[in-house]
């Protein structure tokens, strides 16, 4: 199903929270996950492409600061933030090696106020200005939503008898 022609109507906050959990589920640090979530909430058409990034395993990236920032083995959802930071601090050449431009790179670029364009097979991040974004209610593909939920579920802890009885909040009976 093409992105944006979905049938599930979700609130912006619902989408944001689901993306946040999904990113955390695959190991994206929480601050970066929050930034991805805000970016996707503002650009919900990027949800479908986000799933591909969520499927990629996270491993250590390597950074070379000799001529700006040159990132090898980047995971877009974790490492775009620091590239945007670098651009904001005047780094001229900021490159994510082997990362392709997609809806998610553009959503993140808009969120951070930078551009993200391909050059010689790598993603180059540079200063850019966008009009203010506003998140709102959106339609999503139900299958995308389900798949997002699978990643979000990676943050959930299976229940035990002990956790159900001792670890939860309010009481089991309300008949008083």
């Amino acid at each position: 199903m093409a992105a944006g022609v979905g049938t599930l109507n979700v609130s912006s906050n619902q989408l944001k929270m689901a993306v946040l959990k999904a990113c955390r589920g695959i190991g994206v640090p929480v601050a970066q996950a929050q930034e991805v979530a805000a970016a996707i909430a503002a650009s919900p058409l990027a949800l479908n492409k986000l799933l591909a990034h969520l499927a990629k395993p996270i491993s250590s990236a390597s950074f070379d600061f000799s001529f700006g920032v040159d990132v090898q083995n980047a995971h877009l959802l974790r490492d775009f933030s620091v590239c945007a930071d670098a651009v904001s601090q005047g780094a001229v050449l900021v490159i994510l090696r082997g990362v392709a431009k997609c809806d998610v790179t553009q959503a993140l670029a808009q969120y951070h106020g930078v551009s993200a364009e391909m050059d010689n097979g790598d993603l180059h991040v540079a200063p850019h200005q966008y009009p203010a974004q506003k998140s709102g209610r959106c339609k999503v593909d139900p299958d995308d939503w389900r798949r997002l939920g699978v990643y979000a579920a990676l943050t959930y802890v299976p229940e035990t008898d002990a956790s159900r009885l001792a670890g939860a909040g309010a009481g089991l009976t309300d008949n008083d």
Binding site: P158, E159, S163, G167
Partner: peptide, 12 residues
Amino acid sequence: YVSESKLEPRIG
């Protein structure tokens, strides 16, 4: 944490 079966916050 958040429990898998009930999606409610808990403490372990």
